[in-house]
Simulated scan of single mutants.
Amino acid sequence: MDQITNIITTTAMSIFVILTGVVVKALKDYLLIRGGKKAVQVVEILAKNVVNATEQVAGALDIHGKDKLNHAKVSLIEALSSHNIHLSDDEMNTFIEAAVKRANDEWKK
C-alpha cells in the first residue's frame, strides 16, 4: 500500500511540476509581449521630450541641423539607458524624426 501511495504521490508531483513549468512559460511570453508594447510607448514619450528639450536649448548651445540631431540622440540614449532599453541608430532616428514631425505639426496649429 505504501508503494502505491508513493508512486501516486511521485506521479502527481511530476505532473504538477510540468504544469507549473508550462504556466510559467506562458506567463513569461505574455509579459514579454506586453512589456514590448510598453517599451515602445516609453521610447515615444522619451523621444518627444528629448526633441522638445533640444529645441529649447538649441539657441543657448548654438546648435543647428545635424548638431541638434546628435544632441537629441545623445540625450535619448541617456534616457533610454535608465529604462534599460537599447535601440539601433536607425530606430533612434525613426523615433526622433517622428517626434520632430509631431512637434512641427503641433507648433503650426
Rank of each mutant, 00 (worst) to 15 (best):
L46T: 02
L46V: 00
A47M: 00
A47C: 01
K48H: 04
V50Q: 02
V51E: 04
A53T: 14
A53W: 11
Q56Y: 14
Q56L: 13
Q56I: 13
V57Y: 06
V57R: 06
A60N: 14
A60I: 13
A60V: 14
A60L: 12
L61Y: 10
L61T: 09
L61F: 11
I63M: 10
H64T: 15
H64M: 13
G65Q: 14
K66C: 10
K68H: 07
N70S: 05
H71N: 04
H71W: 03
K73I: 06
V74Y: 08
V74N: 09
S75R: 06
S75F: 06
L76S: 02
I77V: 05
E78F: 12
E78T: 13
E78W: 10
A79S: 01
N84G: 09
N84W: 08
N84R: 13
N84I: 07
I85M: 05
I85T: 05
S88T: 12
S88Q: 08
D89Y: 08
D89C: 04
D89E: 08
E91T: 07
M92K: 00
F95P: 02
I96W: 00
I96Y: 00
E97V: 10
A98Q: 02
A99P: 00
A99S: 03
A99M: 00
V100E: 14
N104Y: 11
N104T: 12
D105I: 09
D105E: 12
D105G: 07
E106P: 04
E106I: 07
K108R: 10
